[in-house]
Each structure stands twice: as structure tokens, then as C-alpha cells.
Simulated scan of single mutants.
Amino acid sequence: MFERMILMIFSFLGILNGAFLSVIFRRKRFYFYMAGSWLISFLSAGYFLWYARGYDGLGLWSLYLGYLACGLMVAEIIALPCLFFLSFLSIPKRLLTAVRRLSLFALLFAAGIGVYGAVDGNTSGQVEHLDVYVENLPPAFEGYKAAQMTDTHIGPYFRYTDLPGEIDRARQEGAQVLFFTGDLIDDVRHMPEAADTLSAKYADFPDGIYYVWGNHEYYRGKDYIEEELLKTPVKILVNEHGAIERDGASLYVAGVDYPWSRGKAMEIEMDSMADEAFRGIPEGAPVVFLAHHSAFLDEGFRKGAAITLTGHTHGTQFGLFGRPIITPFTYTRGLYSDGRNVGYVSRGNASWFPFRFSCEREMVILTFHRK
């Protein structure tokens, strides 16, 4: 179903872009433009889907073809509004030559942005350091370091062999605990290897690894993923909490499941999940709240969590000057505050679609301080 939808969407985009080009270049045989543009779009989407299924055992050439395919898919999206606008500008004959040149430039620009973003988005990233100031933080936790990982989407662009190195980055930064906020894997054929890595790396973190469910676990087979994770020492939090102990003092870690309701029902569902996760935590105790969906930041503010850590949005993977342009999310990327407590939406350690522009992948390192 998903694959058919992707092919249909990009086939339609290709036909539309071809139609606009035929208007701009005044070609009576417009169907050649439409067919050519459709073919590029269809083949790009087709390769993207094929590669996701069969990347195992293929050479490096297949990965770079994957980048090209993803880049051309993005180019189709970028080109659409440009060509739509230029098709109207082409109506006056005096503007026709200039508009045709602009159209060619727009196509080259879109393709360049697409391919660059696909390669760079999957090969570069940064470590984001956050200082978290917490009321009632026990002295034993002053300077305590934690790491957040999220949205690795293990598969063709972030492989299970990449997971050990990414976790090692967290430990090298001095993190004593790892918080994983969902969407670990898409290609569940490699779930045993991913689970083995988590088991092997667990001992690197004195206070272990905490995990909450994302939406992709449900898409890819949550029962099987859970079965493999239960073979590891990873602490899965499903509307419950745990505690990190230091010198008789506690830093609580609460975690919630992924909400599937919509509208007002989603608010009620999230309220219920948060209430259950926080039940039993002493009033005023410092809490790290883990969730996949960024809408849980409001729940973290309501509950007085010292910091709420989420992912899910990937920061939209596209923006300008480090900010998203269009977003369907209230909380999209970076740090937010209600004036007292904070929440953070990670851009993710990877993604299932490699394109990124002005939205690098990130490893989040938190350092806790007494307020």
C-alpha cells in the first residue's frame, strides 16, 4: 500500500511538471514532456523503493544511486511550485526567453539541492550539547551527563552496522545513561543484530539504556521488536517510570507509549499516559520525561518535568538558516520552555529518507545542573 502510494504521488508530480514545461516551451506534443518527466519521477521512486528492499549485499554504487534517486524525488517537489509560477509568467511573449532560462535554472537548482541534501543529510551530523538547570536536583547529580538518541530507522541509509559507532559517540561524550525515544528500526530483518548491539553497549553506560516506543515500531511489527528487546537489559518504559540512584538520591525517568488518537481524543489519551507514567513519583522530584511524539512537551510542562525529550519530527529535515519553513507540528525542533521547565525535540540520529537541508542529524548530550 505504502509503495503504491509513493509511486502514484511521484508519477503525478512528474506528469504535472512535464505539463508545466510543455506550456513554458510551447510544445504541441506536450505528451512527450509529460511522459519524460513522468519516467524520471517514476524510476526515481521505483529505485528508492527497490533499494530499500534489496540493499543488503549490494555495492557502494547502489547507495549512491539511492542518493541520486532521493535527490531527484526531492527535485520533483521543489520544481513543482517553481514551474507552476513560471508557466503563468511565460504567457506574455516578451518574457518567454527569460522564463525559459529561469525554468532550466530552476530544474538544475532543484536537482542540485536534492542530490546535495540526500548525500549530506546521510553523511554529516553534529553533537548538540544542552545544559539543563533543574530545581531540587540532588547535589549528587550536579554535572551528570545523559545522551538522547532517536529515530535511527535502521535500514538502507542507517544500517545496523552504523549503530555501534553512533552509541559509542554518546559514551565518548561522557554520557552515563542513554535515553532512546523511539523509531529504532525499519528493516526488522536486522532486529537481532540491533538487539545484540544494545546488549553489548549497555554496560558502557553505568545507568543503562531507557527506551520508549515510536510509531514505526508499530508499523514494522512491535511484537517482534519487543520480543528481541526483551532479550536485552534495555529498560522499556510504557507509561511507567524508573529511577537513577546516586548517593541515596534519585533522578526519575518517566516514559510513555505512542498516542494513536487524533484531535481532542489525543489530548485525553496523552493526559492518561502521562498521569500513569508519573504516578508514584514524589511531588517536586526531578524527572526526565521520555516520549516519541513531540506533542508530549505540553504534558511535560503540565507535570513539571525537568526536561521532556522527544523526536518523531526529524526537524522536518528541511529548512533555512537552521529553522523549519513549513511544519505540521507545534513543537518541531530544538529547545522549548514554559518559563520554568524545558522540552527538547531532536532532529534525529538518522531517518528513513536521507534528504536533509539546513537540518543536520544530531546526537543530544545533556548536562544537568542545580538551579
Rank of each mutant, 00 (worst) to 15 (best):
K222R: 14
A249M: 05
A249G: 00
A254W: 09
F296H: 13
V288I: 12
A295E: 07
S272K: 12
V288Q: 01
D275I: 02
M273G: 10
Y219G: 08
H293K: 14
T232G: 09
M266N: 12
H292M: 11
A243V: 13
R246N: 08
M270T: 11
W213H: 08
M266D: 08
F278Q: 14
E267W: 14
K235W: 01
A265Y: 10
P233N: 01
Y211R: 03
F278C: 15
Y218D: 11
A277E: 05
L230K: 15
F296Y: 15
E240C: 06
P286S: 01
I236Q: 09
N215I: 02
K222I: 13
N239K: 08
E283D: 15
A277N: 04
Y252T: 04
G280S: 12
F289D: 00
R220L: 03
P259A: 03
A295C: 02
S261I: 05
Y210G: 02
I268Q: 15
G255I: 04
R279G: 05
L229P: 00
P259R: 10
K231A: 01
N215M: 09
A277Y: 04
G214V: 10
G214Q: 09
E267V: 14
G221N: 00
E267M: 14
E283L: 13
L237G: 06
H216C: 07
N239T: 04
S294E: 00
R220D: 12
R220P: 00
I281D: 13
P233G: 02
A295Q: 06
L237D: 07
E283S: 15
V256H: 03
R279K: 15
W260M: 14
P259E: 05
A274I: 10
K222S: 13
I244E: 07
M273T: 07
E269A: 07
G248P: 08
G248T: 10
Y224H: 02
A254H: 02
L290H: 10
N239D: 14
E227H: 12
P282L: 12
D247C: 08
E245T: 13
F278G: 13
E245A: 11
G255F: 04
P233V: 04
I209Q: 02
M273Q: 15
R246T: 03
I281T: 10
E283F: 14
L229R: 00
L297S: 03
G242F: 05
A295N: 01
Y224I: 08
G255V: 02
V238Q: 12
Y211S: 08
T232V: 05
M273K: 14
E227C: 03
L290T: 08
A274Q: 11
L251E: 07
G284D: 13
N215F: 04
G221M: 03
S294W: 01
H241G: 10
A285D: 10
V256Y: 06
S294R: 02
W213N: 08
E283W: 04
K231H: 02
D247S: 14
K222D: 13
E276F: 02
I236H: 00
F289G: 01
Y210I: 06
A254R: 03
A295K: 09
L290N: 07
E227Q: 13
L251Q: 06
L251M: 11
F296M: 11
I244K: 12
L229F: 09
N239C: 04
I281S: 12
V287R: 06
H241R: 10
E226W: 00
H293E: 08
V212P: 08
L237Y: 03
P286R: 01
K222L: 12
E276L: 14
L230W: 11
M270G: 02
